[in-house]
Amino acid sequence: MWKTPAPASPAGRPPGGGPLLAVENLHVEFVTRRGVVRAVNGVDCALNAGETLAVLGESGSGKTVTAQAIMGILDTPPARVTRGTIRLRGTDLLGLREEDRSRIRGSRIAMIFQDALSALNPVFTVGAQIGEMFRVHRGLSRRDAERRAVELMDRVRIPDARRRVHDYPHRFSGGMRQRVMIAMAIALDPEVLIADEPTTALDVTVQAQIMELLSELRRESGMGLILITHDLGVVADAADRVAVMYGGRIVENAPVHDIYRAPAHPYTKGLLESIPRAGGKGRALRAVEGSSPDPMAMPSGCVFHPRCSYRQDDCAAGEPPLHPIGPFRGSACHYWREVLHGSHG
């Protein structure tokens, strides 16, 4: 298995022996009428304090299900974790009683979502919703909770917080709603913040504001940030390390500079080549042919082999493990050397 590097960022709490969060061999299934969907198939990853780990993947890759499993908000049934461990500073969350799990949720691990409007309750003021974190987890009075809500809204730079604390979610723009959700998420000073496509629904100028805010909060608090996204630009901007998911597996992980400089999995390479770049105008983009695998009928062997230009006969037979290929790097491709050194494809 791939080993965890030292914290990439000097900020934050000392690592204290192990990683802040360690996911090992995680499997999640969905039982549906049509059969069992194996959404996550043996995911290993680790997060250090103060670090940003990007989980990069396209729709159906299992990145959101992985996040929901870590947060403990999978819809069970139909979903269930069938194997694996998720350790927060050594404690396996999957072994905890629901009561203990829910105490951790929100206070030690928090999450923000793509769609802030549907994550906020339309019939309560934002102040009441932010304040609820303090009332439920910390037992504060209504008045104290509201005072803390105003402080948090200031911290996430919502202008005129003292007045706006009494407004309802629909009175806020998309970017401001996302700030409200960030305020709720950081209210109890979590150690891990999971941001699931936090800027996908936002315009690019607002996206830049939100990403700036997240990285500032991470620097100040030393929390670990798991950034789930499909956007190669956002990853390049914000991540310390990257885990690339495809078909429910991590197919490559690496420090951010390494993966953009020289990808070691054909899928990562294909993604990077398919982005339009300034120099390539008028030429066809190098698309990854085919489409994502059907979760009900995953290909045998390597899940990517039907779309892969490096494919050999043995790729359909054996599922490649995540080969350790360098310092803190892994690639789940039998032919990672060829990919890495660009000898073909």
Binding site: Q207, D231, D237, Y260, L272
Partner: peptide, 10 residues
């Protein structure tokens, strides 16, 4: 504001 898909020099 557009994030550049290259971490070099970010």
């Amino acid at each position: 504001a557009v994030p550049v898909p290259d971490p070099e020099g970010r």
